[in-house]
Every structure is written in C-alpha cells, then in structure tokens.
Measured scan of single mutants.
Amino acid sequence: QTVQFNGLEYHFPNPEEAEKFAKKVAKELGGEVRVKDGRWQID
C-alpha cells in the first residue's frame, strides 16, 4: 500500500498502516486524504 504526499511515496505492508499514517499526516498538515488509483494521496 502506498501513501503519496509532497512528491514522496511511503510504502506500507498493509492497508491499515497506510490508512493510519495518511490520516495522521493529513491531520498534521491540515490536508485532505483521498484514494486515487489504489494509493492514498494527501493534498
């Protein structure tokens, strides 16, 4: 599972970890999490 933001990609072994990370980062950055092409993106 991949999380993308600021032009970087973070890879996680399972979707739960990816989701948790994506939501944490979005909260800290005040961004929005969305899934695109099977990847988590933070904008």
Score class of each variant (00 low, 15 high):
Val35Trp: 15
Thr2Ile: 15
Glu19Asp: 04
Asn14Asp: 09
Lys20Gln: 12
Lys23Arg: 14
Gly31Ser: 08
Pro13Glu: 12
His11Cys: 14
Asn14Glu: 05
Glu28Cys: 15
Glu32Gly: 06
Val25Met: 12
Lys23Cys: 06
Val3Phe: 06
Gln41Phe: 15
Asn14Met: 04
Phe12Lys: 00
Gln4Ile: 15
Glu16Tyr: 11
Val33Phe: 07
Glu32Pro: 04
Trp40Lys: 00
Glu19Arg: 06
Pro15Met: 11
Gln4Phe: 15
Gln41Thr: 15
Glu28His: 08
Leu8Glu: 10
Glu9Ile: 15
Gln41Lys: 06
Glu28Asn: 06
Lys27Glu: 12
Gly7Ala: 04
Lys20Phe: 09
Val25Asp: 01
Asn14Gln: 04
Arg34Lys: 13
Val35Tyr: 15
Asn14Ile: 04
Thr2Gly: 02
Asn6Trp: 08
Ala26Leu: 06
Gln41Ile: 15
Tyr10Thr: 03
Gln41His: 14
Gln4Met: 14
Gln1Ser: 14
Val25Cys: 10
Glu17Asp: 11
Glu9Gly: 03
Lys27Ser: 11
Val35Arg: 06
Gln1Cys: 15
Lys20Asn: 10
Tyr10Arg: 03
Glu17Asn: 03
Phe5Gln: 01
Val35Lys: 07
Arg34Pro: 03
Glu32Ala: 11
Glu9Leu: 14
Gln4Pro: 02
Asp43Ser: 13
Arg39Val: 15
Gln1Lys: 10
Glu16Lys: 08
Pro15Thr: 09
Glu32Asn: 10
Gln1Ala: 13
Val3Glu: 00
Asp37Ile: 00
Glu32Trp: 10
Gly38Asp: 06
Asp43Glu: 13
Gln41Leu: 13
Asp43Trp: 15
Gln41Tyr: 15
Lys20Met: 11
Lys36Ser: 11
Tyr10Pro: 00
Leu29Gln: 07
Pro15Asp: 07
Tyr10Ser: 01
Ala18Leu: 02
Val3Ile: 04
Pro15Phe: 11
His11Thr: 09
Glu32Ile: 14
Leu8Asp: 07
Val33Lys: 01
Lys36Trp: 06
Val35Cys: 14
Val33Pro: 07
Trp40Arg: 00
Ala18Val: 01
Lys20His: 08
Leu29Glu: 05
Tyr10Met: 07
Asp37Val: 00
Val3Arg: 00
Gln4Gly: 06
Gln41Asn: 07
Asp43Leu: 15
Arg34Phe: 15
Lys23Asn: 12
Arg34Tyr: 15
Gly31Asp: 04
Phe21Asn: 01
Ala22Leu: 05
Ala26Trp: 05
Tyr10Lys: 04
Glu17Met: 10
Phe21Glu: 02
Ile42Asp: 02
Val35Glu: 10
Phe12Cys: 10
Gly31Asn: 03
Ala18Phe: 02
Tyr10Trp: 12
Lys20Leu: 12
Phe12His: 00
Gln1Met: 12
Val33Ile: 12
Gly31Phe: 13
Asp37Lys: 03
Glu17Phe: 05
Arg34Met: 11
Ala18Ile: 01
Pro15Glu: 10
Ala22Asp: 01
Gln4Ala: 14
Leu29Gly: 05
Phe12Met: 02
Lys23Tyr: 14
Gly7His: 05
Pro13Trp: 08
Leu8His: 13
Thr2Glu: 03
Ala18Trp: 02
Asn14Leu: 05
Asn6Met: 12
Arg34Thr: 14
Gln1Phe: 15
Asn14Arg: 05
Val33Trp: 07
Arg39Leu: 14
Val3Gln: 01
Val25Ala: 06
Lys23Phe: 12
Pro15Ile: 10
Leu8Cys: 15
Leu29Pro: 02
Gln41Met: 14
Trp40Pro: 04
Ala18Asn: 00
Leu29Ala: 06
Pro13Asn: 13
Gly31Met: 14
Lys27Trp: 10
Gly31Trp: 12
Val25Phe: 05
Arg34Gln: 10
Ile42Trp: 04
Trp40Met: 02
Arg39Asp: 05
Asp37Tyr: 01
Glu19Ser: 05
Phe5Gly: 01
Thr2Val: 15
Gln41Glu: 13
Val33Asp: 02
Ala18Lys: 01
Arg39Phe: 12
Lys24Gly: 08
Glu16Asn: 07
Glu16Leu: 10
Gly38Ile: 01
Val25Thr: 06
Glu32Ser: 13
Ala18Gly: 01
Ala22His: 01
Asn6Asp: 09
Tyr10Ile: 09
Glu16Arg: 08
Leu8Phe: 12
Ile42Ser: 02
Glu17Tyr: 04
Gly31Leu: 15
Glu16Gln: 10
Glu28Gly: 04
Ile42Ala: 03
Ala22Arg: 03
Phe5Ser: 02
Asn6His: 11
Asn14Pro: 00
Leu8Trp: 12
Gly38Ser: 04
Gly31Lys: 07
Leu8Ile: 13
Glu9Arg: 07
Glu32Met: 08
Phe5Arg: 00
Phe21Val: 01
Glu32Asp: 08
Leu29Asn: 09
Gly7Ile: 02
Glu19Met: 08
Pro13Cys: 13
His11Val: 10
Val3His: 01
Val33Ser: 04
Gln4Asn: 10
Gln4Asp: 08
Asp43Pro: 03
Pro15Lys: 11
Phe12Leu: 03
Val33Gly: 02
Lys20Ser: 10
Leu8Asn: 11
Tyr10Ala: 03
Phe21Gln: 01
Asp43Gly: 08
Lys20Gly: 06
Lys20Glu: 12
Lys27Leu: 13
Phe5His: 08
Lys20Ala: 14
Val25Ser: 03
Ala26His: 05
Glu32Arg: 11
Gly30Trp: 04
Thr2Met: 08
Lys20Val: 09
Gly31Cys: 15
Pro15Tyr: 13
Leu29Ser: 12
Val35Gly: 04
Glu17Pro: 00
Lys36Asn: 10
Val33Arg: 00
Thr2Pro: 01
Phe12Ile: 01
Lys24Glu: 12
Trp40His: 03
Phe5Cys: 07
Lys36Ala: 09
Gly38His: 04
Lys24Cys: 15
Gln41Pro: 03
Glu19Val: 05
Phe5Leu: 11
Asn6Arg: 09
Gln1Tyr: 15
Thr2Tyr: 11
His11Gly: 03
Gly7Ser: 05
Lys23Ala: 08
Ile42Val: 11
Phe21Thr: 01
Lys27Arg: 09
Leu29Lys: 05
Gly30Phe: 05
Ala26Phe: 05
Glu9Gln: 08
Gly7Tyr: 04
Ala26Ile: 07
Glu17Val: 06
His11Ala: 06
Glu19Cys: 11
Arg34Asn: 11
